[in-house]
Simulated scan of single mutants.
Amino acid sequence: MTNQTTWQVLLVEDHPIFRDGLAAAIGLDDGFTVAAQAATAQEALTAARTTELDLVVMDLGLPGCSGIEATRDLKREHPQIKVLVMTMSEDDDSLLAAMRAGARGYLLKGAGRDEILRALHTVAQGGAVFSPHMAERLGPLFASFTGAAAQQAFPTLTAREREVLGLLATGLSYRQIAESLYLSDKTVRNHVGAIFAKLQVRNRAEAIVRARDAGLGT
């Protein structure tokens, strides 16, 4: 984040009416300024090179180069910029591809203004956020995607603990992990406590560093 009183936002969306409506909604929050808009991946990359940005709201269905590729290129050139995907795509492949590319959030276009602004604040502050419908599928998806790697990196953890650690590494809160795995908050915190003890780390930040060093959450 830059040393400013507001976060600078780039909107990447090829439908001008939707983009204008989104810009108007974001503009109602004093915490954000829509610094640039783009209709293609190339326009987004150009804007990122010429404008000081903190956040990007990225559509996936862009003409030519996809939003996934655009996110990957943006994160490669400007790793400090945080990306929130906003799309119509509800399929698992798009969700996983966005996370792999470096997105910190995944919202469906049916989200209301308050949900969008909450998501932007969460992502701007370093967290991760997902539409409830997508969050429900994160646990099983993440388990199938990273299970073998996590088992090799953390053999002392149980399968559920590895699953929790992986979701923790993506930036999810304890409540979001609980919702995605259909667990209570207390159960998630118990798992996290066991993870800390087994990995010999003192806190969440140290656990996330260990997880990301092993390739989880990226």
Rank of each mutant, 00 (worst) to 15 (best):
L120T: 03
D20E: 13
R160N: 07
P132Y: 07
A153H: 04
A24I: 05
R100F: 13
K109A: 07
H78W: 08
G127F: 00
L141H: 05
E13F: 06
F145P: 05
W7M: 12
T51S: 08
N203L: 12
G193E: 09
D185E: 10
M134S: 10
L165S: 04
V34M: 01
R49I: 01
D20G: 11
G217C: 01
L167N: 03
S66H: 04
K75P: 11
V192R: 05
T2L: 15
L138W: 09
K198L: 02
F32N: 06
I195Y: 02
D185K: 12
R210S: 12
D91M: 05
P132A: 03
I81L: 12
T50H: 14
N203F: 10
I68S: 02
T46K: 08
D185I: 08
V57S: 11
G147M: 12
V129W: 08
A178F: 01
A48S: 02
A97L: 04
L108N: 10
F18T: 00
R72F: 08
A111Y: 09
L199K: 00
W7S: 12
V164I: 13
T158Q: 10
L22A: 05
I81M: 01
G127P: 04
L45A: 03
D14R: 03
M58Q: 07
Q42W: 13
G215C: 06
I195A: 02
F32Y: 07
A111D: 10
R212F: 03
E179H: 02
A211S: 11
N3D: 14
Q8H: 10
Q37I: 09
Q4N: 15
P63W: 10
G67E: 02
L96Q: 04
A119C: 07
A41D: 04
A103C: 05
V209R: 08
Y106P: 00
R49D: 04
D73S: 15
H191G: 01
G67S: 00
I68L: 06
L107E: 00
T2Q: 14
R160S: 01
A205K: 04
V209N: 00
D93T: 13
E13W: 10
L95H: 08
L157S: 05
P132W: 10
C65W: 11
D213C: 09
A150H: 10
S144E: 14
D29H: 04
L107F: 08
A101F: 15
A169E: 06
A41P: 08
T51D: 11
V34H: 07
L167Y: 04
Q42N: 15
I17C: 02
